[in-house]
Design a protein around this nucleic acid. Structure first.
Lengths: 132, 132
DNA sequence: CTTATTGCAAAGGTTTTGCATCGCT
DNA sequence: AGCGATGCAAAACCTTTGCAATAAG
C-alpha cells in the first residue's frame, strides 16, 4: 500500500500530515476523526483539526479512503480496499470485516432486484465469539 | 398504526408534538431533523427544536422509530416497520424500500457467517428507472 | 518558483442542557 | 395532583472558512 504513490496519482501532494492520516486510518481499521486527531497530535503536536477535516473530505472524494456509516456509531473512515461487510458485535462494539468475495452477496442482490448495483453497504449486528 | 397506543405501551405520554413527529416521519418515509422541524413549525409554530431532538432520541431508544444511516446523507429517521433494504438512486437520490421478505437475504448471510444475526442494515446504490 | 497545503482563529452550524412552565393521564 | 414533556435560552460541541505562512514538486 504505497500511499505516496497513490496520492501523486490523484494529483495530491504527499505531505507528512496526509501520509500520517492515511497510516493512522490503515492501522485503526475503522477510526473516527477524534481518534485520528489524538493519534496525530502525538506525532505532530502542531497539527490542526482543520487540516484533518479538509484531508478526510478530500481523500474520500478522491476515493483513497471510504467513510463508514453505522447506526449508533460516529462517522468513521477506512482505507479503501475491496468492498466488504461490516460485522459489528452488539456487545463489545468491535467491527469485523468480511470480504464480499467470500460471499457473493452483490450478485445475489443484483439478481433479486434485476438491476445493476453501483455500491453496497452492509452492516450486520451480531454477538461475537468472545462475547458469547 | 396507532401511535397513541404505541407510546402508552412504552410508558410515554402521547403529546401532540410526539404524535405529529411520528406522523411526519411516517409520511416522509425517510426524513431528517431539519425537514421534520420545518413541517412541524407549520402546524405548531411554537415548537422547539430541542423538543424534536429529545423526542427523536427517545423514540429511537424505545424502538418506535429507527435511525437511517446512509453515507453522504444526513441522519434520517423512519417508523420502525419490517426490516428492509434501502435502494438509493445515485442520481436523483430517492430512497426506495425493499422488504426482506421478498429476498431472503438475512438467511443468506446467516448461513454464510454461520451465526445468528440480530440486525442488518443494507444500503444499495443504483440508478433508478426514471434516471436511466 | 509555483501552487497546493497547512495552521490559526473566527464564524457558522448542530446538538445538548437546565430550568421554569405546562399539560397528559 | 403528580410527573413527564415542552419551550426557551445558553452552553457545548462539531465542522467549515478565509487567509497568511509554509513546503512539496
Amino acid at each position: 500500500m504505497d500511499f505516496h504513490k497513490k496520492l501523486r496519482e490523484k494529483g495530491l501532494k504527499a505531505t507528512p500530515q496526509r501520509l500520517l492520516i492515511l497510516n493512522i486510518i490503515k492501522e485503526g481499521g475503522h477510526i473516527d476523526i477524534e481518534d485520528i486527531y489524538n493519534k496525530l497530535k502525538k506525532i505532530i503536536p502542531s497539527i490542526s483539526i482543520a487540516t484533518i477535516y479538509k484531508n478526510l473530505k478530500l481523500l474520500v472524494d478522491k476515493g483513497i479512503i471510504k467513510d463508514v456509516n453505522i447506526s449508533s456509531f460516529k462517522q468513521m473512515y477506512e482505507v479503501n480496499t475491496k468492498e466488504h461487510i461490516h460485522l459489528i458485535c452488539k456487545k463489545c462494539r468491535k467491527i469485523y470485516d468480511l470480504d464480499f468475495g467470500e460471499i457473493d452477496i452483490k450478485n445475489f442482490i443484483e439478481k433479486k432486484i434485476d438491476d445493476k448495483i453501483d455500491k453496497i453497504e452492509i452492516n450486520v449486528f451480531f454477538l461475537c465469539e468472545k462475547c458469547k
